[in-house]
Nucleic acid binder design. Structure first.
Length: 850
RNA sequence: GCGGGUGUGGCGGAAUUGGUAGACGCGCGAGAUUCAAAAUCUCGUUUCCUCUGGAAGUGUGGGUUCGAUUCCCUCCACCCGCACCA
C-alpha cells in the first residue's frame, strides 16, 4: 500500500477545483443562498496561524453548506490600507503600495495552498482605486443625506516630529519615535452621524439571535442607552449649568458640581484665572483613551463659584474635574457623594458634605455612608418630599417636578459618540472634498472620482506626505475656479471594512453595490472572526449598512445574520539564559528530553502559552507546517481538540497527531476498499453490520449538528470514533457486511471532506465514486438506523453510583425500580436501611434514597 | 478604573443542558512486531487508601436539590475590549 502524499495530492485537487471553477458563485434565485465570510486579513506580509484557524473554520461551514445544497458565496479580499505600510515606507524606504501589493501576492499564494473553497474571481483590495473610489462616492451621498458633518476634535500631537499620533503610537504619554511628551491639539475633522442610529442599533441587537450573547451585551454597553434627566442649575452671573444624571433621586444628596476641563464654562472662568488655566492644560496633557482617564488620580479645581440646587435652598461648589468627559452627556455632573464611589472619593478629598439619602431595607434613619458608597436598592430619606419613596418612584417624582418647574427635561442619552473618520495619514482613502477660500467646503464632482492617491510621495519629512505634495494638493475650485486645496486627510480604515462584505456581492459594479446582487446575497449568513472586533468593526458595519440603505443602495438592515467569534492561537514561550525570546524552530530536545537551543545547546526556560506574537517569538509559520504535513493536517489540527470559540494551543505533538490521523484514515479507507463490490441494499444484516450502520448514521447526525453549532472539535472526535469502528469492522463476505462497509466508507469520506478536502477527494476518486466529493450531496442520517435497543442505566444510592444495569430501551419506571432494587450490589448498599424514596428517570437513572 | 469572558486528569478537552464526570485526542507506561529503529497494532492510564473493595474529586468557600461541571451567592486567578492598531 502506498503512503498518502499530501504535497502532490493537494496540488492536484487545487488545480482540478480551479479548472472546474468549482467555487465560482453565481446568483441563482432558484437556489437558497448562503454567504459565508471570514473577516478579511490585513496584508501584513505572511499569514499567521490565527488566519489559518479563522479561514479553516469558515471553509468548513462553506463546504458543508455547499454539500447541503446551498448556493454558497465565499469570497476573499484585503483590508489593505493602514499604518504598517507607512511604517514600512519609513523604515525600509519602500512605497506603501508596492509593499502592500507584494504582501497580498504572497499571502494569496499561502491562502490558496490551504485549499479554501473561495471564489477568487471576486477578490479585491481596499487600496484599489476601483474600491475606494466607490467609497468616496458613497461618502458624497452620505453628505447629501445629512450623515456627515465637520467638527473640532482632539488628536495626539508629537511636538518633535510635528505629526499626529495614533493611540498605539503613544507610549506612557510620549511619542513612540521621538520620546517627547505628547500634546493634545484640536483639529477640524469629519464625523459620521452614527448617533442618528443609536436607538435603532441598540434595539435591533435583540433580534440578532445568531450572534453570541456576549457580543450583543458588549455592544449594548458600548451604545450605553440610559434614561435620565437633564437638570439646570442656576449660577450667579452665568448661564445655567446643564447636567445629565441617571440618578435624579439622589438630588438631595448633591454635594457639588463637576465640569469637564473642555466645558465652555471652564474656559470662560479660566480667562482671568491662571491657576485654572494651568489645571485645564494639565487635564489635556495626558493620553486620550478612556482607560487612561479612568485610571489616573481623580483631581478637581474649585472654581470658587457656586450653583444653586434647583430643588432646595442650597449652594453647591463648582469644580473643574479631570474625570468628567466632555463627550458624554452635557460634560457636567452633580456629585452625590453617598451613592457613587467616585463622587464619594472626591468628596472626601475636597471636604464636601456627604449626605446619605438612600437607606437599604432594614436600616433606619441613622444609616450613613462612610467609606463605601451605597448604590443598591432602598428607600429615600433626608430628602424632603421624596422621603419614603423607592428609588424608581423618586426618580419619577423629581422628573415630574423638574418638567413642571422648568428646571429639567427627561432625556434618553447614549454613551455612543459620533464616528470621527479623519486621519492625518497618506495610506488611506482620500476624503473627496476641496477647501476653497470663497466657496468653503466643496465636494469633488462625482465625475472627477476617484480621487486617486498620488504615487510620487516621499516619507522624508514627518507628517502626512499629502500635505507636502503641491501638485496633488493644489487644485482649482470646481465651483468658482479659483485656486483651492484638496482635503489631505484620509479615511479611518474602519470605513473600508464597514462595507467590503457588500462589495463582494458585485465586486466589478460601477456603483458601490449592485442592488440586485446585494439583495440576493446579503445579509452574510455566517460571519467568522476574532472577538477583538466585537464592538467597533461590527458596530460600524451595522451603521454603514443602514446608511447605505438610506441612500438607496440596498434594502438590507443588518449586515451579519450569524456571527461567530473564534479564539486566538497560542503557543508556549521560550527564553534563553539571557532572557531573550527564542523561536520554537530554533530549539531541539536533548538526550534528557529538555529543550535546548540548536546553536548553543543551552537549555531554555519554557514559559506559559500565550497568543502567538512576533515580539515574543512564539510563532509557527503556517507555510512550514503545510510544506511538512500538508494543508489537510494543518486544517485538521486547527479543528480538533479546542472548541472554536476558545483559545487554541499550538503544539508540535498535536500536529503530529493530526498527521498520523491523515495517514491512518488513508489506510483505513484504502484497506477497506479492497474486495468491495456493489451489491445493492440487502434485506439481512449481521449484528456487526447493524452496529456499523448505527455508528455510520449516528456520525452523520452528530457531525452535521456539530458543524452547524460550531462544535468542530466534537465533530472531529466523532470522526475518530467512526474511523476506529470502520477499522475494527471485518466483513464476513456477505452482501450485508459489504454493503454496510461500503456505506460506512462513503460516509466517512464525505464527513471528513469539509475538514480535509484534498484527502477526501483522493479517496473518493479511488473508491470510484461519481464526480468530486466537493459537489456530492451531504449524506442523510436515517433515524431508524441510529436506534440502540439496550441501554445502560445507572443506579445510585443516596446519589452515589453503586451499580449499573443493562435494560431494554424505554423500560417503564416500575420495572426499572424492581430491577434496580434486586441487584446484589444495591442490596448490599441499602443494607438494613429503610427506603424512603426511589427516583426513577426512564432511560437515565434510578436513585434510591435511604 | 469600567465592560465582557474563561477556569474539569500530566496536557487539549467531552458531558444529550440538573441524571454513570473524564468521551475523543495528545503524552506517558507495558506488551506485540522488528537484527535494530521508525511506523504500526494491543492493553493500561483522575488522585488517594487498609485495593475482589472504598473514599475524595470539575479554580476557592458556601447554598438549593434525591442528585450540581451544570442553578444561586462569595472570593481568587488569567484573558479580551475601552473609540487613531487591525
Amino acid at each position: 500500500m502506498t503512503r498518502y502524499n499530501a504535497g502532490i495530492t493537494e496540488a492536484k485537487w487545487q488545480k482540478i477545483w480551479t479548472e472546474r471553477e468549482t467555487f465560482l458563485a453565481v446568483e441563482d434565485p432558484s437556489l437558497p443562498k448562503y454567504y459565508v465570510l471570514e473577516m478579511f486579513p490585513y496584508p501584513s506580509g505572511k499569514i499567521h496561524m490565527g488566519h489559518v484557524r479563522n479561514y479553516t473554520q469558515g471553509d468548513v461551514v462553506a463546504r458543508y453548506r455547499r454539500a447541503k445544497g446551498f448556493n454558497v458565496l465565499h469570497p476573499m479580499g484585503w483590508d489593505a490600507f493602514g499604518m504598517p505600510a507607512e511604517n514600512a515606507a519609513m523604515e525600509h524606504n519602500v512605497h506603501p503600495a508596492k509593499w502592500t501589493y507584494e504582501n497580498i501576492a504572497h499571502m494569496r499564494g499561502q491562502l490558496q495552498q490551504m485549499g479554501l473553497s473561495i471564489d477568487w474571481s471576486r477578490e479585491f483590495a481596499t487600496c484599489d482605486p476601483e474600491y475606494y473610489g466607490q467609497e468616496q462616492k458613497m461618502f458624497l451621498d452620505f453628505m447629501e443625506a445629512g450623515l456627515v458633518y465637520r467638527k473640532e476634535s482632539w488628536v495626539n500631537w508629537d511636538p518633535v516630529d510635528n505629526t499626529v499620533l495614533a493611540n498605539e503610537q503613544v507610549i506612557d504619554g510620549c511619542g513612540w519615535r521621538s520620546g517627547a511628551p505628547v500634546e493634545r491639539r484640536r483639529l477640524s475633522q469629519w464625523f459620521l452621524k452614527i448617533t442618528d442610529y443609536a436607538e435603532e442599533l441598540n434595539a435591533a441587537l435583540d433580534h440578532l439571535e445568531r450572534w453570541p450573547e456576549k457580543v450583543r451585551t458588549m455592544q449594548k454597553n458600548w451604545i450605553g442607552r440610559s434614561e435620565g434627566l437633564r437638570l439646570f442649575f442656576e449660577i450667579d452671573d452665568q448661564d445655567p449649568l446643564e447636567v445629565y444624571t441617571t440618578r435624579p433621586d439622589t438630588i438631595f444628596g448633591a454635594c457639588g458640581m463637576a465640569i469637564a476641563a473642555d466645558h465652555p464654562l471652564a474656559a470662560k472662568l479660566a480667562e482671568n484665572n491662571p491657576a485654572l488655566q494651568e489645571f485645564i492644560l494639565e487635564c489635556r496633557a495626558g493620553a486620550t483613551t478612556e482607560e487612561a482617564m479612568e485610571k489616573m488620580e481623580k483631581k478637581g479645581f474649585d472654581t470658587g463659584i457656586v450653583a444653586k440646587s434647583p430643588i432646595e435652598d442650597r449652594d453647591l461648589p463648582v469644580f473643574v474635574a479631570n474625570f468628567v468627559l466632555m463627550d458624554y452627556g452635557t460634560g457636567a455632573i452633580y456629585m452625590s457623594a453617598a451613592h457613587d464611589q467616585r463622587d464619594l472619593d472626591f468628596a472626601h478629598k475636597y471636604n464636601l458634605d456627604v449626605r446619605t439619602v438612600i437607606r437599604p431595607d432594614g436600616e433606619d434613619d441613622c444609616y450613613a455612608v462612610d467609606k463605601e458608597a451605597y448604590t443598591g436598592p432602598g428607600t429615600l430619606f433626608n430628602s424632603d418630599f421624596l422621603d419614603g419613596l423607592t428609588i424608581e418612584d423618586a426618580k419619577a417624582e423629581v422628573a415630574r417636578r423638574a418638567e413642571k418647574g422648568n428646571f429639567g427635561i427627561k432625556t434618553i442619552n447614549f454613551r455612543l459618540r459620533d464616528w470621527g473618520v479623519s486621519r492625518q495619514r497618506y495610506w488611506g482613502c482620500p476624503i473627496p472634498v476641496i477647501h476653497c477660500e470663497d466657496c468653503g467646503i466643496v465636494p469633488v464632482p462625482k465625475a472627477d472620482l476617484p480621487v486617486i492617491l498620488p504615487d510620487d510621495v516621499s516619507f522624508d519629512k514627518p507628517g502626512n506626505p499629502l500635505e507636502h505634495h503641491p501638485t496633488w494638493k493644489n487644485i482649482d475650485c470646481p465651483e468658482c475656479g479659483k485656486p483651492a486645496r484638496r482635503e489631505t486627510d484620509t479615511f479611518d480604515t474602519f470605513i473600508d471594512s464597514s462595507w467590503y462584505f457588500a462589495r463582494f456581492c458585485s465586486p466589478k459594479s460601477d456603483d458601490p453595490v449592485d442592488a440586485d446582487a446585494a439583495n440576493y446575497w446579503l445579509p452574510v449568513d455566517q460571519y467568522v472572526g476574532g472577538v477583538e472586533h466585537a464592538i467597533l468593526h461590527l458596530l460600524y458595519s451595522r451603521f454603514y449598512t443602514r446608511a447605505m440603505k438610506k441612500i438607496g443602495l440596498s434594502s438590507v438592515d443588518e449586515p451579519f445574520d450569524g456571527l461567530f467569534t473564534q479564539g486566538m492561537v497560542c503557543h508556549e514561550t521560550y527564553a534563553d539564559t539571557k532572557g531573550n525570546w527564542v523561536l520554537p524552530t530554533d530549539l531541539i530536545k536533548n538526550d534528557d528530553g529538555a529543550l535546548v537551543e540548536k546553536k548553543t545547546g543551552d537549555i531554555v526556560t519554557v514559559g506559559r502559552s500565550i497568543k502567538m506574537s512576533k515580539s515574543k517569538k512564539n510563532v509557527v509559520d503556517p507555510t512550514a507546517i503545510i510544506d511538512q504535513y500538508g494543508a489537510d493536517t494543518a486544517r485538521w489540527f486547527m479543528l480538533s481538540d479546542s472548541p472554536p470559540a476558545r483559545d487554541l494551543e499550538w503544539t508540535e505533538e498535536g500536529v503530529e497527531g493530526g498527521w498520523r490521523f491523515t495517514q491512518r484514515l488513508w489506510r483505513v479507507v484504502t484497506m477497506g476498499m479492497e474486495g468491495l463490490r456493489d451489491c445493492g441494499e440487502p434485506a439481512e444484516f449481521s449484528k456487526a453490520a447493524q452496529d456499523l450502520r448505527r455508528i455510520t448514521h449516528v456520525s452523520i447526525d452528530t457531525v452535521s449538528r456539530d458543524i452547524e453549532g460550531f462544535h468542530f472539535n466534537n465533530a472531529v472526535a466523532q470522526i475518530y470514533k467512526f474511523s476506529n469502528a470502520v477499522n475494527a469492522f471485518k466483513p464476513d463476505g456477505s452482501d450485508g457486511d459489504i454493503h454496510a462497509l461500503r456505506e460506512a466508507l462513503t460516509t466517512l469520506i464525505q464527513l471528513t471532506a469539509p475538514m480535509m478536502p484534498h484527502l477526501a477527494e483522493e479517496m473518493w476518486q479511488m473508491m470510484g465514486q461519481e464526480g468530486i466529493v466537493t459537489d456530492a450531496d451531504w449524506p442523510v442520517a436515517q433515524p431508524e438506523l441510529m436506534q440502540e435497543n439496550t441501554i445502560t442505566i445507572a443506579i445510585q444510592v443516596k446519589g452515589k453510583l453503586r451499580d449499573t444495569i443493562e435494560v431494554q430501551k424505554d423500560m417503564d419506571s416500575a420495572e426499572l425500580e424492581k430491577l434496580a432494587l434486586a441487584t446484589e450490589k444495591i442490596k448490599l448498599a441499602v443494607g438494613k436501611h429503610a427506603i424512603r424514596k426511589v427516583i426513577v428517570v426512564p432511560n437515565r437513572i434510578v436513585n434510591i434514597v435511604i
